[in-house]
Design a protein around this nucleic acid. Structure first.
Lengths: 227, 227
DNA sequence: CAGGCAATTTGATGTTCATCAAACTGCCTG
DNA sequence: CAGGCAGTTTGATGAACATCAAATTGCCTG
């Protein structure tokens, strides 16, 4: 793993993230200065459940799976983090140990924020505090949405939801390019890869065609009926 | 619905909640002063998904279901809130509209906090900000745990988990008194009431006996094997 | 204590999805 | 271009759970 201070281009990427957008001037600078950039291999563990928590992260490039393991070794993704997303910021005020695992999906670039340092910044700077609260709130809302969706919707409905949220248009035909392997999409939707594949098959009569990562939608409005 | 300012006994209850424990002096007083107490009937709607968000709440007495509805009218609980718990505090910095429904399960007493007022307090008082962040962090961790548990564990395992977390002892026999109807427990665990009942049946050979709300556990360590 | 209503349990059935195995695809490398 | 490998799809099967209906329990009220 390669560590270094923030370069100019990485700074630009960080500014677009949930945590830092909304910050300016000195608040922004202080938070940026506290970060270290890590280049990581695919499938490298960022942290493990039960470990003492000493940092949270922002994804600059690549994807990170947050997941839990059952005692028998089965594996369930809880969240898939994309470029621009923050994870484990709940550890700033959330207890001593990580409560889930984090692993890169492919090679990834992460900005690492030291928890102790950020705690100090949050106490001193109400703008930073507000950014952290916004970030936490959004994640809580998203995660509650996930619980509801898991409990309420079938696999094809969840897939249709995902596609519709990423559709550029309201009606007529559209296409969506998956930003990652179907493997990750399955984890994000709480499905086994086979179940995702079958969900796409179920949607085919509704005008959804799959070619690799490219998904063609015949009629967006028709797809909305599935949900 | 009966509204009034905080009485002395309600003040005592509020002090024990996640949001206010940890606060003292002026910070505590300011937040307390902003609250209004509401007495509510059973099954009264506190707010609905899509409504403009103007308040968050703390449960003083009774129980509140947070849930989402599917288009066809099916119903899925996302969280069951108990006395001492805060809900919808994610709306302080989380967008304009409520993203789920809240309804009292039985007659309930709630402390209502105006969002605008609390936003002002959070900006001015870093102690209050810290309390809000702690609250958000804990809820996020709990909700992520819920996603993982739904995806990883079967119904009997989730029931066993619930019982074990509430067991006074580490080994030997124990008993757990459910604080509410099995209906609510089913919702909390993401199960239909029938599925909860069957999960208890599955646990009977493992020494779990059910009599109304009183659950007897023959051997706590044996039950831990189920998980 | 009887009656009535709501909550819970039980039975029967169907759907949804996980799992295992095998075929297939695409991509990359030698 | 052959070979290999990971990712994906398809088929067959089974487990888990929802749903509907009916029986039962528990609790409250008159």
């Amino acid at each position: 793993m390669n560590k270094h201070a923030i370069t100019e281009s990485e700074r630009g990427q960080l500014l677009k993230t949930t945590l830092l957008t909304g910050l300016q001037g000195r608040s922004l600078q202080r938070l940026l200065d506290s970060a270290i950039v890590e280049e990581r291999e695919g499938r490298s563990s960022v942290f493990r459940q039960g470990e003492n928590a000493d940092a949270f992260y922002c994804v600059l490039n690549g994807y990170v799976r947050l997941f839990r393991l059952s005692r028998e070794g089965r594996h369930a993704d809880v969240r898939i983090c994309q470029p621009g997303e923050v994870f484990a910021e709940c550890m700033i005020y959330g207890g001593d140990d990580y409560t889930f695992n984090a692993q890169t999906a492919d090679t990834a670039t992460l900005a690492r924020f030291d928890l102790g340092t950020v705690r100090r910044l949050v106490e001193e700077d109400s703008n930073i505090a507000r950014s952290v609260m916004t970030c936490l709130s959004q994640h809580l809302i998203d995660t509650m949405h996930c619980v509801g969706s898991d409990r309420l919707n079938t696999a094809p409905q969840r897939v249709a939801d995902y596609l519709l949220e990423r559709c550029p248009t309201d009606r007529g035909p559209a296409s969506v390019q998956l930003p990652f392997q179907k493997n990750l999409l399955a984890g994000m939707l709480g499905l086994a890869p086979e179940a995702l594949s079958r969900a796409f098959s179920t949607l085919r009569p509704r005008g959804v065609t799959v070619r690799g990562r490219m998904i063609q939608i015949g009629d967006v409005q028709a797809l909305r009926e599935v949900v």
